[in-house]
Nucleic acid binder design. Structure first.
Length: 477
RNA sequence: GCUCCCGUCGUCUAGUGGUUAGGACACCAGCCUUUCACGUUGGGUACACGGGUUCGAAUCCCGUCGGGAGCGCCA
C-alpha cells in the first residue's frame, strides 16, 4: 500500500440509470456527499450505463433532477461509464496478456447446466473454470469468447470495511467472473474497478448489497496490482413492514417525495438519521451534518422507512423556515404539487401578499406542503362554499343567526387586519354575553367550509373584508 | 442450498462490564385554546431466546431462532 497520506478524499455516487433515484440511492448519495463535505474532499458522479438495454435517458435525467432537488451537488463533469468502454477493454486485454485473465468459450447453455447441477448437488452455483487452463486451440468455431478473471482459488479475501468491519470471504466461494462480455463490452464488476481507480476514488460508499461484490472487486484490484480504495458498505433501508424496499413496495423516486410536499432539507435530515447518529441529536442543519458526519458512526443494521417520522421532521422544517423563504419554496414547489394548478391560477401579487400574511398560521399546522395548501384551500375556493359535514353542523339556525348579527360589526371594521378584527369581535362577544367559540366556529364554517382552520382572525384578514362578508352572507341567508 | 451481515420500546436510535437502560417519532392522558395544530406536563411500552465467562452483563464467547444481502455475458 503506497497510498500517499496527503490524498484528498474522493467519493463517488454511481447509480445505474435503469429507473428513478429511489430513497435508498438518495441516502447513499447523501452519505457520499456528506463525507466529501466533511473531509474537504470531492464527490464525483458516475452513471453506470454499461447495460445498454436497460439504461435510459429518462432515468438519467430523473437521477440528475433528484440529486439537484436534494441539493446534492457533485464535483466535475458527470462521467458516463459506457463512454469508457475502450479503456475497460484495454485493461482486460492487458490482464489477458499478463495471464491474470483468460478467454472462456462456454455457451449460455453450458453455464445454465453448470448452475443447475451445482444447485442440485447442494453446491453454490458457480462457473467451474473449465476454460481456465484449456488450450485456446480447442475453442469451438463460431463462439465469441468472454474474458474471465483468473481468480484466486485458495485462501480468503478480506474486505476491511469502515462500517462492516473485517469481513472474510472464502475464495472458493468466488468464481472466475466475467470481465468482458462476448460482444466486447465490459461488465459492471470490471468497469467499476477500472473507473474507481482511474477517477482516483479514495472511498467507496455504497449499499451492503455490494459487500460480496467488494470481495470480487478486490481480486480484480489485486490482479491489476492496484491499491484498493477504502470501503464503507452501508445498511439498506427496508419498508415499514421490514421487507426489502422495492419499486413495487414503497420505494418511490425522490420526485414523488417532492410531489408529496416534503422539503429537501427535511428529507436529508430524515435520511441521515437512518443508520447514522450523533448521540441523542435529531435535527441537523446541513451545516451541522457536514461538520459532524463520520463513517464509523454508521450502524450496521438495516432501518425501516417510517413515514410518520419523516412527516414530523418535515413539519419541523416547515414551521422553522422563515415566512418569506418558505413562500419562495412553495412557489418553486407549486408546479410539482397536486394542488399547484389551483394556486398558480390565483397567484397574483395581491394574492401572494395575502398568502404571506396567512403563512404563519398555515405553517404551524402543516406536516407537508400539501397539508399547508389544503389548509389554505379556502383562499382559492369559489363562492358559494360548500361546507363539509362538520362545518354544516356549525351553520345551524343558531349559528346563522349569530353570523347575521355579526355582519354589521364586520362591515364597520377598518383597517381590516387581524388585530383590529380580534379587538372588535371580542368586545362584541363580551357585550352580547357569548363565548368567543360561539361566533368563531360558525364564522370558520362560513369562511372556510370546514370546522378547523388557522386562527379565525387571520382567516378574515387573509380573505379581506368584502370576500369575507360575501361568504358570510352566502351562508347566513 | 452455500457465503456474509444484522437483532435495545411499534419505528429511528444512545449505550461499548456496574445506568432507576437515555432521547426522538408514534400512542394515551392533562394543560393551553376560537377549531385544528404548535407548545407544554405526565404515562405505558425494549435489551429475540438459551447457555456460558465474570463479584457483576444490553455490552464478551457459543448455540438457537428470526430478519436481510449476495451467489448472471444485471448493476
Amino acid at each position: 500500500m503506497d497510498e500517499p497520506m496527503s490524498d484528498a478524499v474522493i467519493t463517488r455516487f454511481a447509480p445505474s440509470p435503469t429507473g428513478f433515484l429511489h430513497i435508498g440511492g438518495a441516502r447513499t448519495a447523501l452519505f457520499n456527499w456528506l463525507f466529501a463535505r466533511a473531509t474537504g474532499g470531492k464527490m464525483l458522479l458516475r452513471i453506470e450505463d454499461t447495460d445498454r438495454q436497460r439504461s435510459t435517458p429518462e432515468a438519467i435525467s430523473a437521477i440528475l433532477d433528484g440529486l439537484s432537488w436534494l441539493g446534492l451537488n457533485w464535483d466535475g463533469d458527470t462521467i458516463y461509464q459506457f463512454a469508457r468502454a475502450e479503456r475497460h477493454r484495454q485493461v482486460a486485454h492487458d490482464m489477458l496478456a499478463r495471464g491474470r485473465a483468460y478467454r472462456c468459450y462456454a455457451t449460455a447453455a453450458e453455464l445454465d447446466e453448470m448452475r443447475e447441477r451445482a444447485t442440485a448437488e447442494g453446491r453454490p452455483p458457480r462457473y467451474d473454470g473449465r476454460w481456465r487452463d484449456r488450450d485456446p486451440a480447442e475453442a469451438p468455431a463460431g463462439v465469441e469468447p468472454v474474458i474471465r478473471l483468473k481468480a484466486e482459488r485458495d485462501g480468503e479475501t478480506i474486505v476491511d470495511d469502515i462500517v462492516q468491519g473485517r469481513v472474510v470471504i472464502p475464495n472458493k466461494d468466488l468464481d472466475d467472473l466475467v470481465l468482458l462480455r462476448s460482444d466486447g463490452n465490459p461488465t459492471y464488476m470490471h468497469a467499476v474497478v477500472v473507473d474507481d481507480h482511474d477517477m482516483n476514488v479514495t472511498h467507496i460508499i455504497r449499499g451492503v448489497d455490494h459487500l460480496t461484490n467488494a470481495a470480487r472487486q478486490i481480486q480484480i484490484y489485486r490482479a491489476l496490482d492496484w491499491v484498493v480504495p477504502q470501503m464503507a458498505h452501508i445498511p439498506l433501508i427496508h419498508g415499514a413492514d421490514g421487507a426489502k424496499l422495492s419499486k413495487r413496495h414503497g420505494a418511490l423516486g425522490v420526485d414523488a417525495y417532492r410531489a408529496m410536499g416534503y422539503l429537501p432539507e427535511a428529507l436529508r435530515n430524515y435520511l441521515v438519521r437512518l443508520g447514522w447518529s450523533h448521540g441523542d441529536d435529531e435535527i441537523f442543519s446541513t451545516e451541522d451534518m457536514t461538520r459532524l458526519f463520520t463513517l464509523p458512526a454508521i450502524g450496521k443494521s438495516a432501518a425501516r422507512f417510517d413515514v410518520a417520522k419523516l412527516e414530523n421532521v418535515n413539519g419541523h422544517y416547515i414551521r422553522t423556515t422563515g415566512n418569506e423563504q418558505l413562500l419562495e419554496t412553495i412557489e418553486q414547489a407549486l408546479p410539482h404539487l397536486p394542488a399547484g394548478p389551483a394556486f398558480l391560477a390565483a397567484w397574483t401579487d395581491e394574492f401572494r401578499r395575502r398568502f404571506l400574511k396567512a403563512l404563519p398560521g398555515l405553517k404551524e399546522r402543516a406536516k407537508t406542503l400539501n397539508d399547508l395548501l389544503d389548509m389554505a384551500s379556502f383562499m382559492v375556493a369559489p363562492r358559494p362554499l360548500r361546507p363539509d359535514e362538520k362545518a354544516a353542523r356549525l351553520l345551524d339556525s343558531d349559528g346563522r343567526d349569530r353570523l347575521s348579527a355579526i355582519v354589521p360589526v364586520l362591515e364597520s371594521i377598518s383597517p381590516f387586519d387581524a388585530a383590529t378584527i380580534e379587538a372588535r369581535l371580542k368586545s362584541h362577544v363580551e357585550t352580547t354575553g357569548m363565548k368567543l367559540g360561539q361566533i368563531a366556529q360558525p364564522l370558520r364554517a362560513a369562511l372556510t367550509g370546514r370546522a378547523m382552520s388557522p386562527g379565525i382572525f387571520d382567516v378574515l384578514e387573509a380573505l379581506g373584508q368584502s370576500e369575507s362578508l360575501a361568504r358570510i352572507k352566502d351562508q347566513a341567508a
